[in-house]
Nucleic acid binder design. Structure first.
Lengths: 187, 187
DNA sequence: TTCATTTTTTAACAAATGTAAAACGTGAGC
DNA sequence: GCTCACGTTTTACATTTGTTAAAAAATGAA
């Protein structure tokens, strides 16, 4: 398992020593398309890294579902509120294709954070990267029109555009499916 | 300085030992209202904690400024992209009142992260808290209408509502000042 | 105070987006 | 093939929000 981890992008910056420490707690798992891997309102006890397949995170509203995140191979995948506050989350994570993942128990990961400074800083940088990406999306919602956001999504994530239902992409971009259709038709 | 840090909310979880390590690198500074503390397109070398006063972070667009963050007493204040990627940022931070702050050089903070596991985990949690707050705002933009976002802002941050110009609050909420006026008039 | 500047509100109109319903396309299973 | 279920597009209309300009109100300095 140690050798496998070396080839996963998110672990590339870690030393052999840190990888060895992590690898003791890692499991590989696979699930079918349609699986709800993480359920809102439950405390999720695992932290996942997606190896193959794609996934989405969404929240349920009164009349709609809002997709606010997509994961591809290499993405980390966890319940924010379980991970950060040890409380039930607000997001569901659904696998949009058959997926292979590796996982680690949150309790084990937290122990590693407390005992290994290299892993603690790795976890810090991971949160920081997610933070800067999320803030950029928030700012883009104000600066850019829906058509521009769609174009950038298409340019930046052509693979997701092909594999994900447009209704999910519409809510990810913050518009209705009708508006997305209009944008795509060029009107 | 060590005794002072114990009374700052963000440092409350740290041990005496960690506070002592940090306090060696801390300076107190104060600036007048209107100061642009952090400028976009420059690599910022300090990390700040706001002690009194308020501040806003904004990005410049072609025709508008977008305010995407407010800081009050106790908030941490830094250039995301300088802090995370050591590159020039996309945000300016303006002090909206006379402010007292403490600051630490990023280089010193990073050294503390590498040498003290308690501080490394403190930095991790800080990034995680900012992340979850930012993601919530992003999701709220899809779920909630502008009127509801305004009401929640007013309920949650009555102090900011009184002290900050409405034009800044409008862009923080993702609407124009005209729309915010309409919301406030109840139309 | 008074004057000048800035902020906020209001108005009229234009543009973008939402809602609801129907039409169309596609793929799975019978 | 046919039918059903689902996703996507289109249409017509309603609603929200933006734009521009101007007026009103608030603020701050002399």
């Amino acid at each position: 398992m140690h050798q496998q981890l070396k080839h996963i992008a998110i672990f590339k910056t870690l030393s052999d020593n840190a990888l060895l420490a992590i690898s003791k707690y890692i499991q590989a798992v696979s699930y079918h398309k349609g699986t709800i891997l993480i359920q809102a309102d439950k405390v999720e006890t695992y932290f996942y890294v997606l190896q193959s397949g794609i996934a989405r995170a969404y929240s349920d509203g009164e009349s709609q579902q809002i997709t606010f995140w997509f994961g591809e191979s290499g993405s980390v995948l966890f319940s924010f509120n379980s991970y950060i506050n040890n409380k039930p989350g607000y997001e569901n994570i659904e696998l949009l294709e058959d997926c292979v993942l590796i996982r680690i128990k949150l309790a084990d990961l937290f122990n590693l954070y407390q005992g290994n400074i290299e892993i603690a800083n790795w976890g810090r940088k991971m949160a920081e990267q997610e933070l800067i990406a999320t803030e950029r999306r928030l700012i883009d919602r104000s600066f850019k029109g829906a058509a521009e956001r769609y174009q950038e999504f298409a340019d930046h994530s052509p693979s997701l555009l092909k594999r994900v239902a447009l209704k999910h992409i519409a809510s990810y971009l913050g518009v209705t499916q009708v508006t997305l259709s209009r944008i795509r038709a060029g009107k």
